[in-house]
């Protein structure tokens, strides 16, 4: 699994990255979290509002800092059963 946080370097993007890291820690997972800041790459995901979270190349959240519980849910859904 691979998680990307899309954002232009704003405060909310950093917060989102921290929430994702927190969620992973709680789930005892070690998954690489990559911060994507350059605009063409962000746009390639069709995202218009940042921060956004991409799990395995799929956009799962956009335009908000999700709660940790929501991120855990997103990661669970993305995990192969």
């Amino acid at each position: 699994m691979e998680i990307k946080v899309l954002g232009t370097g704003c405060a909310n993007c950093k917060k989102t990255k921290a929430v994702v890291a927190d969620a992973l820690k709680e789930m005892n997972l070690t998954v690489p979290v990559i911060e994507v800041q350059d605009i063409p790459s962000i746009m390639a995901y069709g995202v218009m509002s940042t921060p956004a979270i991409v799990i395995d190349e799929k956009v799962v959240s956009a335009g908000k800092v999700p709660a940790k519980s929501q991120v855990i849910e997103m990661i669970r859904k993305a995990q192969p059963a």
């Binding site: 370097g9 962000i42 218009m48 509002s49």
Partner: peptide
């Protein structure tokens, strides 16, 4: 519309595209 100036750029590009 929910808007934060930090996403002004992706929004601008999205609109223009």
């Amino acid at each position: 519309t929910p808007f934060c100036s930090c996403s002004a750029v992706p929004l601008f590009i999205g609109f223009v595209e």
